[in-house]
Amino acid sequence: MSLRARVLDALGEVIDPELDEPVTTLGFVSSCEVSAAGDVTVHLRLPTPQCAPNFAFLMASDARTAVGRVPGVGAVEVVLDDHFTGAEINAAVARGAGFGDAFPGETRGDLAALRTLFRRKALVGRQARICQALAADHDDATICAMRIDELAPTPEVERCLQLRRELGLPHGGDAPALVAGDGSAIEPDQLRMWLRKARLMTLSLESNGEICRALLAVRYPDQPQEVEVPA
């Protein structure tokens, strides 16, 4: 596998925290150049110049970290293009600084709480899809009693487990397949209303992703994604 392919692989692990999708499949990576010496330049683009600076920062900063970890990579430059706070973000990411340093006086802390909030939303949204699929041929009591080991290891399930690890929620094979916010199993008599609420979260994540894709396509109509995502 070429160094560029491994760099792209690494970028595929960078998630838009608000949409819970990789920046590569969202089309946010507009170019990725690797020099003979292994120096990498990645350009990121977003659907609007006003996309939230906090999420933009997380993606740019995570991209730099992910690419920097790839063996053989030299210097890493990540450039967020066409964004109203691009200059601040690019400068802070380049010097490895935190969000607070990018916007002095405009934050009260780092982005950990924001990231946690959106991991929770992402987990709820993904669990709703898993639950809906299970509901096709299982009754509510059976679904609530299911363990992780009983789920097929689909990418959706794997992502849920990763989120549960990151959130400190139980994720062992005998942990409940679906969990509430505190990590406990869901009671069968509450499953339908839980699903209604969780499904709304799925819709929110999915429709935001759709809006972002649609706006990105309008913003860059003649520049289709240059980056081939490794299979």
């Binding site: 006003q50 939230a52 600076p53 916007f103 405009e106 934050t107």
Partner: peptide
């Protein structure tokens, strides 16, 4: 609700 509410580290929406 718009995308630039202070403080920037919170969910602006």
């Amino acid at each position: 609700k718009g995308p630039t509410i202070w403080p920037l580290d919170k969910d602006a929406f």
